[in-house]
């Protein structure tokens, strides 16, 4: 699913668009280098179901469940994970 992000740009929904309790399926991991590799190594591979559990009291990071483990991910990194 894509959503209108203002102007003429469409962008994919990302992990950060999920509200607490919502699930999504990973479509792709954007970016490059250590951050992408780390996300992939932690199991954010295409086809994986991820769930946002909660948001930290100050709004960032978010807690997600992926492959049975709880992970804390910053929004800046969560935005690299495209979700359907």
């Amino acid at each position: 699913m894509r959503k209108f992000a203002g102007g003429k740009r469409w962008r994919h929904r990302t992990l950060c668009d999920l509200r607490p309790g919502e699930r999504g399926v990973v479509v792709a991991v954007r970016g490059q280098g250590p951050i992408r590799r780390r996300l992939l190594d932690m199991g954010m591979t295409p086809g994986t179901v991820v769930q946002v559990v909660r948001v930290a009291p100050l709004g960032d990071p978010v807690q997600v469940t992926c492959k049975g483990t709880a992970l804390a991910i910053r929004r800046s990194e969560g935005e690299q994970v495209e979700i359907r």
């Binding site: 951050i35 483990t69 804390a72 991910i73």
Partner: peptide, 10 residues
Amino acid sequence: EPAPFVLELP
């Protein structure tokens, strides 16, 4: 660059 922050909550 800021460090990536992906931390397991064991």
